[in-house]
Design a protein around this nucleic acid. Structure first.
Lengths: 254, 254
DNA sequence: CAGTGGTCTAGACCACGCT
DNA sequence: GCGTGGTCTAGACCACTGG
């Protein structure tokens, strides 16, 4: 019967979207259940589900078994300042209270940072091998970090070091090691310059699971390559951050 | 009958995803049609569709009536170098060939830049007013830019200036005005420092249309605030770039 | 025109959350 | 327990693309 009009599911999506935008459905509150929408519009439940899925893909709704569909809460993202280095120096001389720049930055914004670290030896993925200018077969030491704020995972961060550079140093310990001037400085390889590259894309399924990313939320991929004064690459750090939790900030002198 | 395993549609999505990642399905080439996947796995077509929708949401597939599902082409995004200023100086003294930093950067990567500019007087949106520290009622001069590469729209860029600052200057002309040291420098307000903020989100419907953004592609929102040496904000530039066309790059000294 | 995906129906069973 | 969404089936008709 239906014809050249817009699809039924879009009309239903429009109706619900409008009610969200006008505030008739408030953030955190449940919207009309599927069955009721289906009955009201005289369509099948499947059609309603397509409509609600579209809204979820736009980031407007969350849903779950037994929970119903709810209007998504919007929180202001945390600012990640990428031109502030080694904040640990400002936290006193006790190495036990030293934190890395990220943790200090989060704490400064009144939140509770936490990170878990593991270390492994591996063959680098191609884009890391390129940036470190490694030959095929060269191995790297990888420090995997899961950074959380207030118990919610905020970042996946993997640092790659050429294996010969860090063999036998504290960098191979799966702890939160910090040192004035930076870890690489402490082992005799100070970083003089960074190249930061920033991408955005939709998360993979594995990332949505590990970071508990709600639908329709992109991730920002941040790749920082650190160089010695002579231009040799020392480190590549690849960080994945859900875009609803972080913004990036750079302070630049003209 | 099936139970505590992962859902069927995820298993199917995993299989197709793996074949894309290993290169068995090449970019631009069609993947197995829905009906065939359904028959092969002994599931209904609807279940296959959910699987393929998930891959489309990850940005791996495109599809359309009669066209089938195809592996999405991945073009390497253009790198936008945000710590290179005023490249025009390197292009000779002739003002006719002078270009802004962005255009020079694009040309250096072997592509053909183009931009269209319009100028208007307006009340600033709240986030611009905040960053320029304006009072309610203060007006701004807005320079709207649509930047294209090889005929494809690449950026929407709006620069906001406090109106008293630029009244009667070349900045109010809807041309591509360039000057050594920068536009604001030329009118007596050199920028000493920038604060760049970076967000990612899904595009609005209007942005999808204007920038011709394919499905499942986020946009990067770049907000640059320029300050005078005394700390007064001089300019806010808000730029929207589709994430499949651009990466951002910063060169940072430690 | 044959084959594709886009939309839609009318059922079904299950897992989960709440009260 | 009851209502919710999550998964799934077995059909159907349509619109579009491509050779």
């Amino acid at each position: 019967m239906p014809n050249d009009e817009r699809p039924l599911y879009e009309q239903i999506a429009d109706e619900v979207r409008r009610k969200i935008e006008t505030g008739e459905f408030k953030p955190g509150a449940p919207v009309t259940p599927e069955m009721e929408l289906a009955a009201r519009h005289g369509v099948s439940r499947q059609t309603v589900r397509v409509a609600l899925k579209q809204l979820a893909d736009e980031g407007l709704l969350t849903s779950g078994k037994g929970r119903g569909h709810r209007v998504r809460d919007t929180h202001t993202p945390l600012q990640w300042r990428l031109t502030q280095f080694e904040a640990s120096e400002h936290r006193g001389d006790n190495p036990e209270t030293a934190v890395d720049a990220w943790a200090a930055d989060v704490a400064a914004q009144g939140r509770e940072p936490h990170q878990e670290i593991s270390v492994s030896l591996a063959l680098p993925p191609p884009r890391v091998a390129d940036r470190l200018r490694l030959e095929p077969g060269d191995t790297v030491v990888v420090r995997h970090r899961v950074r959380s704020v207030d118990g919610i995972p905020y970042q996946l961060s993997d640092s790659y070091f050429p294996e010969p550079l860090v063999r036998g140093t504290p960098l191979m310990e799966p702890r939160d090691v910090t040192a004035p001037g930076g870890l690489l400085h402490a082992i005799g390889h100070p970083q003089a310059e960074f190249l930061d590259e920033i991408f955005a894309r939709m998360p993979s399924r594995a990332e949505t699971d590990r970071l508990r990313i709600p639908g329709a939320t992109p991730v920002i991929e941040h790749i920082r390559t650190g160089y010695a004064a002579d231009g040799a690459p020392l480190r590549v750090m690849v960080t994945i951050v859900p875009a609803d939790r972080h913004s990036l900030a750079y302070q630049v002198r003209a």
